[in-house]
Design a protein around this nucleic acid. Structure first.
Length: 702
DNA sequence: AGCACGCCGACT
DNA sequence: GTCGGCGTGCTC
């Protein structure tokens, strides 16, 4: 028998593919290849009876222990028309997978454009040929508006700063212009540098995109968000990866874009919870931005700029400690004043008041002068629930432990958690009573009531006052958000009712009044971050008003934020009245410190979903037992398993368990050691009925 | 995680 | 008769 010898050029590569850590396989699979491949190369490899996209992670000259060379399958194709993903990118992905307790393959492949998955080298080649390399363009040095003293100072201070920068600028202080100038300065200095700009919501990309395109040559900019078609996303990703795109504007997913010459990351509205992913790997794009800038800086300087009028307490704390550099911009452009707070004490109002008469009058007065009002109510639909007064029936969702919301517009009951929709019954399904009534109020109802209550009010042109509504329901169709915003800009609409969607970023020039109707829901929520979110929301909403100082001066109007509350003495309002975020933050941080909560303590949440609540909780109890004695265990607290606030969604029972530690490394060490034990629990008989489980590191809501 | 295979309900 | 629901099992 002749000696079996490998051909000279035979090599092996460890390839990352989408297989979860709990599949029993390692993080990488080893394949055979005929040519030397570098780490970061994209390949196509066989997986069972199909072929899949993989990423070369490591190169080796022998298969791993326990794997016969004959067991390895060959790499099918090499996508070498694309340069390899660089080491910093790979390190970012590896860190995210490790830190957020997910499989490397899941994070790596989710970070790549989905269209890349089913692309042969030939198809890729054709696609690359079509996108001709674009010539780097000079940044237009056209006449720019002069900077405010705050802006000029911030830009000067930004220069050469190696720490993450927290740009703490009040609403209307011109943070965006600072981002633009910082990007411009960098792009002029370094003809190959790339800038990543992130916004919390896809809704906010068009207006920033317009501003960026106006300032920078059009083809140097690409967007990256979930609203793109697969082909667009692939094209934009490739432009970034090849270094052709100089500016990438995107949502949280853009933090994983391949940017070989990344020199600046801007995180706009850094406090926004949307930066924390809520499915799959639950990463914080803001935190990863800080990490990524540090990784890049080991190679070439890369700044990270976090901007907000109400920074997250985490970032604020980091700035207080000097880990971040804080740059403050306290003044509004044009010297406009921030709105005056008008607290409406609901205890002093006539019974069953929905909108205080004085507030109504203030809106009518403004409409009469050609000014606009914004009314904030964080509930879609007409009423959160329908009820029968005779038998106590409520419009509960059959699949969730939540009410189905009454939408009057199409006579439906809709569950906002699972999407289950039914027609509104004509009579109580339990007792036949014809008198079933809506309880509570949503945006539809406020729109209806305001229309009625303002029926006699007139605009300057003598026409009746126009009320419109802006929420997820009215903006579902493509382009409807744009057309609604246009209606607001043109002055067609006098009063706009909406959910928090209306509070974000939009620059309406004629708003002089903002009102919050059901403010208290955020005051006493069980979630310890609720006050922080409420303060940010109210500040942000307030920031929509009086943005055009010249308009306000001309009108001679008072710019106001009206807040309806049953608790006008709440300290949050005292800080809000003074627009005093630092005082609010100091008070919140003091509470957090004494309770050892973030940013002083660190948390992770284990969530279990099962057929029954006992099954979900049993799994969590077993998980806790499996954690006893693991590294880091002595430095952390495992709380008992509890049902989640909404216990059942789409017929799945949910429970969770909180883990706290004063030490982030201890928590991380524990979670890493715990992971295999949790996977092994699958085999446990008591685990029957478990559907899935996941760990949420640094959870935002508990 | 994907994705294929495989086995039971409402329609082109 | 199929299309398609998601349960189970596999992936160097």
């Amino acid at each position: 028998m002749s000696e079996l010898r490998a051909p000279n050029l035979l090599a092996w590569v460890d390839v990352v593919v989408t297989a979860p850590a709990h599949s029993g396989l390692g993080e990488t699979l080893t394949y055979r290849c005929e040519q030397a491949l570098t780490p970061g190369t994209l390949v196509r490899v066989p997986m069972g009876r199909r072929e899949t996209l993989g990423l070369v992670w490591a190169v080796r000259d022998h298969p791993p222990e326990g794997l016969q060379p004959a067991q390895t399958r060959p790499v099918t194709a090499v996508l070498d028309a694309l340069p390899p993903l660089n080491a910093r990118w790979r390190e970012l992905v590896a860190f995210a997978a490790r830190y957020y307790q997910r499989a490397l393959g899941e994070v790596a492949l989710a970070a790549l454009p989905p269209a890349l998955r089913d692309l042969t080298p030939e198809q890729l080649g054709r696609r690359l040929k079509k996108t001709q390399p674009e010539t780097p363009t000079a940044v237009s040095a056209s006449a720019l508006a002069p900077l405010s003293p705050d802006q000029a100072q911030a830009l000067a201070d930004l220069q050469g700063e190696s720490r993450p920068v927290l740009l703490y600028g009040t609403t209307g202080s011109g943070k965006t212009e600072v981002y633009l100038r910082a990007a411009q300065r960098l792009l002029e200095e370094d003809p190959e540098a790339q800038v990543l700009v992130m916004v919390p919501e896809i809704n906010l990309t068009p207006q920033l995109e317009a501003r960026l395109r106006e300032r920078f040559a059009a083809h140097a900019l690409v967007t990256l968000h979930s609203g793109l078609t697969p082909a667009q996303r692939l094209k934009h990703w490739i432009a970034a990866h090849l270094g052709q795109a100089r500016i990438v504007l995107g949502t949280r997913m853009a933090i994983f874009a391949s940017l070989p010459r990344l020199r600046l990351i801007v995180v706009d509205e850094e406090h926004d919870p949307s930066y924390k992913s809520q499915e799959g790997a639950r990463y914080s794009a803001r935190d990863l931005a800080v990490y990524r800038a540090r990784l890049e800086s080991a190679h070439a300087p890369c700044q990270v700029l976090l901007g907000s009028a109400t920074p997250s307490l985490e970032s604020w704390h980091a700035a207080e400690q000097g880990r971040y550099r804080r740059l403050a911009m306290p003044s509004r452009i044009g010297g406009g004043a921030l709105p005056r707070l008008r607290l409406v004490d609901m205890n002093q109002q006539p019974r069953h008041t929905v909108i205080a008469p004085a507030l109504l009058q203030a809106m009518a007065d403004r409409a009469a002068r050609g000014e606009q009002s914004l009314v904030l109510l964080n509930r879609r639909g007409y009423a959160p629930v329908l009820a029968c007064h005779d038998c106590g029936w409520k419009s509960d969702c059959p699949h969730c432990s939540a009410h189905a919301v009454f939408h009057k517009i199409d006579r439906t009951l809709r569950c906002h958690h699972c999407g289950h929709t039914t027609r509104v019954p004509r009579a109580c399904p339990e007792c036949g009573n014809l008198d079933i009534t809506p309880l509570g109020r949503g945006t539809e109802q406020i729109e209806e009531q305001l229309t009625g209550l303002l029926a006699d009010a007139r605009r300057p042109d003598g026409q009746p006052v126009r009320v419109a509504r802006l929420d997820a329901d009215t903006t579902r169709a493509k382009g409807s958000l744009e057309s609604q915003l246009a209606g607001m800009h043109s002055g067609e609409v006098d009063v706009l009712v909406g959910t928090q969607m209306v509070a974000k970023g939009h620059d309406f020039r004629r708003i002089t009044l903002v009102a919050s109707l059901n403010t208290d829901s955020g005051l006493f929520a069980s979630d310890y971050r609720a006050p922080e979110r409420l303060f940010a929301l109210l500040m942000q909403a307030a920031g929509r008003a009086g943005r055009d100082a010249a308009f306000v001066a001309e009108q001679g109007s008072q710019v106001e934020l009206w807040v309806q509350t049953w608790y006008p003495q709440h300290p949050l309002f005292a800080a809000l009245a003074r627009h005093d975020y630092p005082a609010f933050a100091a008070q919140q941080l003091e509470e957090r410190a004494s309770a050892q909560m973030p940013p002083y303590g660190h948390q992770a949440l284990v969530r279990a979903e099962a057929r029954t609540q006992p099954a979900a909780q049993a799994w969590l109890r077993l998980a806790a037992e499996a954690g006893a004695g693991l590294p880091g265990h002595e430095r952390l607290t495992l709380y008992p398993a509890v049902p989640m606030a909404i216990q059942r969604v789409a017929n799945v029972e949910r429970a969770q368990m909180l883990i706290e530690s004063p030490s982030r490394p201890a928590l991380q060490a524990f979670l890493a050691a715990w992971q295999p034990a949790l996977q092994a629990l699958r085999a446990h008989p008591e685990t029957h009925g478990l559907i899935r489980w996941a760990i949420d590191v640094d959870p935002l809501t508990i």
